[in-house]
C-alpha cells in the first residue's frame, strides 16, 4: 500500500487474481437489456463444455499456438484482400471448396482455435439452443446440422436438425442471397441440385461446408428474427471444441450485425470477464453506454474487420517514445477472437523494455510460447505492476485491467500479455 501511494501508476494485485477460480461467478454488469446474452469462456467453469469434460482443457501453450495461427491468418487474409488479381483467380474456381485440397491455400481465413468466448442463441421452431463462438473477425454464422452428410465433430448441444424446424428453408442457387456468400466467406457458393452450398475455411484449416439456409433466430423471447441466413453445416472439422458453431459479428451484409440492423441499428457491445471463471455479456442494440469513450473506426482494408487507430501507449503513466507513424503504417483491428494483442515490433520492443524497467525488482522468467517478457514471482503473494494505457484516435485513453496486462503461466510466473509482429509493415 505504501508503494502504491508513492507511485500511483501501479496496480497492486494478488497473483492468484490472475488465475481463474474453480467455480463460476456470474457478472453483475449493468448493461443488461432484453437483447443481452451471457458470454462465457469456453474452457472455464462457467461453460457447460468444461463442467462435464474437465480433461479437455487445452494447455496455455496450445492456446497461444492457435492464437499465433489466427494472427497470421488475419494478416494473410488482409494481404489477400488487397490483391484483386488473386480474388479473380479464386472466384473463377467454382468447385474449389468441394475439393478440400484445392481450397486450402487459396483463401486464407481466420483461425478459430483461440476463439474462446461463447454465447447461447436459439434457432428454429421450436427453438433449439446452440452455444456459438462469437467472433468479430468473421461474418457467416453457421452451426452443425443433421444429417451431417459428411462429418460433424462432437458438440455439447444436440445437433440442429432442420427437418424438425417448421420455419427452416434452404436458399436457392439463383437467389441474390446465395451470391452474397462470396464476400462473407471468401469462397464462391456452389450448388447441390438447386440448393445454395456454402464453404468457409479458416486459417488453421478448420472448415465448415453445407447448405445455405434460413430459419428463425432467437436472441431473446422478444427479439426474434425470422428468415435469418446461416450455414447449415454438413461437413465440419477443426478446432471448434464442443461448440455448436460460430456467430459472425463482422461488417459484411451476411453478419448477424447486418441481418439484425433493422432492430438493433448495427449497434452492439460486449464485456469479456476478467478470468475464465466469470461471465460477461453481449448486448445487441443501444443500451446505456455508461462511461464509454468513442474512437472513430479507421478506414477499412477488409470487408470483415473493424479497424481502429492506436496513437500512443503509456506504461506506468509515462508515454512511450513510439512514432505514431509506426502504428499508422500497419493499421490495427480489434478482434474478439485473438487472445494476445499484436503490435508492430518497434512498438512492442519499446513497450517491453519500459515494462521490464519498472518490474526490475522481480526476476525474469524464461519466455513462454509467443510471450517473451516474463517474470518469476516465487515468494510473492502480491505484486505491483505498472499501469498500461492505450490511446486511440480522437484522444481516447483506455486503462487496461491488470488481467489484460499480465497472463499467468502458473502460480509463480506471469508474462506481459503482448507480442510483436514479425515486421513493422505486418
Amino acid at each position: 500500500g505504501k508503494a502504491n501511494s508513492q507511485l500511483p501508476h501501479l496496480h497492486t494485485l494478488q497473483i492468484s487474481s490472475l488465475l481463474p477460480a474453480s467455480v463460476c461467478s456470474h457478472s453483475t454488469g449493468s448493461s443488461k437489456t432484453q437483447s443481452t446474452l451471457k458470454v462465457f469462456h469456453r474452457h472455464g467453469p462457467c461453460s457447460k463444455h468444461t463442467r462435464q469434460n474437465p480433461t479437455t482443457k487445452p494447455l496455455l501453450a496450445d492456446l497461444l499456438s492457435y492464437d499465433q495461427s489466427r494472427a497470421k491468418s488475419i494478416q494473410a487474409r488482409l494481404n489477400f484482400n488487397s490483391n484483386t488479381d488473386n480474388i479473380k483467380t479464386t472466384t473463377l474456381n467454382k468447385n474449389k471448396f468441394i475439393d478440400r485440397k484445392a481450397n486450402l491455400p487459396v483463401q486464407p481465413g481466420i483461425s478459430l482455435g483461440s476463439g474462446n468466448y461463447l454465447v447461447t442463441i436459439g434457432l428454429g421452431t421450436p427453438t433449439k439452443t446452440l452455444s456459438l463462438i462469437f467472433d468479430t473477425g468473421s461474418d457467416l454464422t453457421w452451426t452443425q446440422c443433421e444429417p451431417c452428410a459428411r462429418s460433424c465433430y462432437t458438440q455439447k448441444d444436440p445437433i440442429f436438425n432442420p427437418a424438425s424446424s417448421s420455419s427452416y428453408s434452404n436458399i436457392s442457387c439463383s437467389s441474390s442471397q446465395c451470391s452474397q456468400l462470396t464476400s462473407a466467406t471468401g469462397n464462391d457458393p456452389a450448388c447441390s441440385s438447386t440448393t445454395c452450398v456454402y464453404g468457409i475455411q479458416y486459417g488453421d484449416q478448420s472448415f465448415s461446408k453445407g447448405f445455405f439456409s434460413k430459419d428463425k433466430l432467437t436472441i431473446s423471447p422478444t427479439d426474434v428474427f425470422p428468415g435469418f441466413l446461416f450455414g447449415c453445416g454438413q461437413d465440419n472439422q477443426g478446432l471448434f471444441g464442443r461448440t455448436s458453431g460460430l456467430l459472425g459479428l463482422g461488417r459484411d451484409p451476411l453478419s448477424v450485425v447486418s441481418q439484425t440492423a433493422a432492430k438493433y441499428g448495427r449497434y452492439f457491445s460486449y464485456c469479456l470477464p476478467s478470468t475464465s471463471s466469470s461471465t460477461g455479456h453481449l448486448t445487441f442494440g443501444k443500451s446505456s453506454a455508461g462511461n464509454a469513450k468513442f474512437t472513430p473506426f479507421a478506414s477499412s482494408q477488409g470487408a470483415s474487420f473493424y479497424f481502429i487507430e492506436i496513437t500512443s501507449i503509456y506504461i506506468g503513466g509515462r508515454q512511450l517514445s513510439i512514432s505514431e507513424t509506426i502504428f499508422k503504417n500497419s493499421g490495427t483491428i480489434i478482434d474478439s477472437g485473438t487472445v494476445i494483442t499484436r503490435l508492430p515490433p518497434t512498438a512492442y520492443s519499446t513497450m517491453s523494455a519500459a515494462f521490464k524497467q519498472l518490474m526490475k525488482k522481480y526476476p525474469s522468467a524464461p519466455a513462454y510460447s509467443i510471450l517473451d517478457t516474463c517474470f518469476d514471482f516465487s515468494g510473492y503473494t502480491s505484486v505491483s505492476i505498472p499501469t498500461v494505457t492505450f490511446e486511440f484516435g480522437g484522444g481516447v485513453k483506455v486503462d487496461l485491467h491488470p488481467n489484460g496486462i499480465l497472463v499467468a503461466i502458473g502460480k509463480t510466473q506471469a508474462c506481459l500479455a503482448f507480442a510483436g509482429n514479425g515486421d513493422d509493415t505486418d
Binding site: 457491445s269 464509454a292 472513430p296 477472437g337
Partner: peptide
Amino acid sequence: VGIFGNTQQKTLEVVYDVAGGKLGFGAGGC
C-alpha cells in the same frame, strides 16, 4: 496489421456503433 486482442479487452465495455462509425471503450463493464 496490429491486433487489439481479447485479453486486453477484459472487463471493458466495448461498444460497436457500426452505423455511427465509432468504437467505444468503457471501464468496469463486467
